[in-house]
Design a binder for these strands. Structure first.
Lengths: 339, 339
DNA sequence: TTGTACGCGTTATCAG
DNA sequence: CTGATAACGCGTACAA
């Protein structure tokens, strides 16, 4: 089966290659006669002709490729978002290429380079820490991108975020109103602003309600050793008085790991400990107690990201936008009153 | 920031574009002098030159793109596999494009077409039912592909599978040996062979041990309404005698949905019901009872798929291979003896 | 080392 | 107004 080019179609249809191109791109707009068009279409079908994307890209200087950089596509949060973005991208005629950075600066850079090489028309990015320089390069090359999940304050870019501070404040407030006095925040050791906002919301809520606050109210976790950090941290915190009577996990992975540990420790929820988790994952549904959680509007995030990117690609002069979407609090058994 | 082409580099370095091409592709092998090479590299760096992938693809007739078609990238089973494949593809210099079929024939076809258009060099495919014609077309066009997770008997192709029959037989046998008499299989209503094998293994084990078998030993689920089918099915089966005293879920999604329902029904595990699930997902870890499960060798599958595909791309004459990898049984609390 | 034909479409321009 | 000619786009690799 040899490759069929536009020339073959032209030959078979007995017309010029230009006509073939016009017809096949629906540029018929009162240019090409009906008969010619039909001949071309017939020939193309019989030969099973498909335009060579590389040639088209080369000529038009467009690739219709957009890239998505997530921390890890195996993380349900990102795979769910990726799925939405895949759908939206397809709707708009883009092909999506996904890459996982593992929160690693080098991998992140090599992904950006890969996308640059492949002349991606735009990127949707969950940036990793310290990737500013790399992203500035991208901006110099006029490749539009949209941040999701997080952002880098030093990089001015299109930006989809959620109300991290408020939702975290609210979640904490909820725990306080349920009469919890010694609330533990489980968070990542990080410089990423969106996560710091979650911590800030937590701290401000404690302060607002005049709850005592000490270092033991926050357990900072190294993203590369979640299980061991949580294991050791919980062993320490739940063995000495005063024990936490509530815990707020600031991400799905922290929550899953933490809940496993709580099961092992056989801590009664919500009697002895109230729990609120961030994100939404099927794992929560199998936990023995219906979990209170904060859900992110994944669909809206994905849709907004592709829309914004597409607009920026279509019209590079568009001013930068930051879209803030609201996360939602779902209150279930796990954070209900003690009795 | 205007686009830099090879011509610009050649001009700046004061050499021919041919030399630039040779140097930048490390085809220096005693072809180009050291000085020239250095000049070229310097100029390229200063201009921040990147080869245009479209032009290169057009000329070389290679794209270094491989495609992956899964049922749904948001399904943890596929997102985990995708992650492995992404890594392996990158290692070998391929860019991976992922598409989700939703088990839908039309979406599947349009994905195949998309990959064909983009001249993907090969595909890794979890085929959907009745997609034979589409795949035959692919074969006619000499685009190599490797099946994962499942396969279509009518399509001769490279194929990575697991020992579906045996592992299912073993899982059932395990339940029988734990003295369970009325085992329920929760399976998909399907024609896909790998799933039928799981059912076959189950049936054969029952037969081997002379257990009575009736329609009520298998609950067939429509993939498009898992929750309702399981809900209704379980309501029926667990309300009339004899109730199942064991259940074997043949996929992660069935298991998660089924376990949710079992929680609602407040059935004691393993006392009143032994449970074995297929696949491995973080959700299982939060279930109140440590779950017995069958794990697939995801890493091996991903690695083997990319390896096989790469070999086939490199040498199209290679004979077809079917690689069968072993799934593993993990026995935990949920299927331990009643007392 | 280098000149240049070639890969395959797109589209401006020209001819009928 | 319809259709054809030909000049690109940008690297690659053969022939010189």
């Amino acid at each position: 089966m040899k490759k069929i080019s536009i020339k073959d179609v032209a030959l078979k249809a007995g017309v010029s290659i230009a006509s073939v191109s016009y017809v096949l791109n629906n540029k018929v707009n009162s240019r090409i006669g009906k008969e010619t068009a039909e001949k071309v279409i017939k020939a193309a079908e019989e030969l099973n002709y498909r335009a060579n994307t590389a040639a088209k890209n080369l000529k038009t200087q467009r690739t219709n490729i957009i890239g998505l950089i997530v921390a890890d596509i195996a993380n349900p949060y990102f795979s769910q978002i990726a799925r939405i973005i895949e759908n939206e991208a397809t709707k708009r005629g883009y092909t999506l290429i996904i890459g996982s950075s593992d929160e690693n600066k080098e991998k992140f850079e090599s992904l950006v380079n890969m996308f640059y090489h492949r002349q991606a028309e735009g990127l949707i990015i969950a940036p990793v820490e310290n990737s500013e320089i790399c992203l500035q390069k991208l901006q110099k090359h006029n490749i539009p991108f949209v941040f999701i999940d997080r952002y880098l304050s030093k990089i001015k870019a299109n930006n989809i975020q959620i109300n991290n501070y408020e939702i975290s404040y609210n979640a904490t407030q909820h725990l306080i109103e349920e009469n919890r006095k010694n609330i533990l925040l489980v968070a990542y050791e990080t410089t990423l602003d969106h996560l710091l906002k979650r911590t800030k919301g937590f701290k401000d809520a404690l302060k607002k309600y005049n709850l005592t606050y000490s270092d033991s109210n926050i357990l900072n976790i190294d993203k590369d050793k979640i299980d061991t950090d949580i294991n050791d941290g919980f062993d320490r915190l739940f063995q000495s008085e005063p024990k936490p009577d509530a815990v707020f996990f600031t991400s799905n992975k922290l929550a899953v790991s933490g809940l496993k540990k709580l099961m092992k420790l056989e801590i009664a929820i919500p009697t002895d400990l109230a729990v609120v988790a961030f994100d939404e994952t099927e794992a929560y549904e199998l936990f023995s107690v219906p979990l209170s959680y904060v859900s992110q509007p994944l669909s809206e995030i994905g849709i907004a990201a592709v829309k914004l990117l597409h607009e920026k690609i279509t019209n590079p002069l568009l001013p930068l936008q930051t879209i803030v979407l609201d996360a939602e609090m779902h209150i279930k058994e796990s954070s209900k009153p003690k009795n």
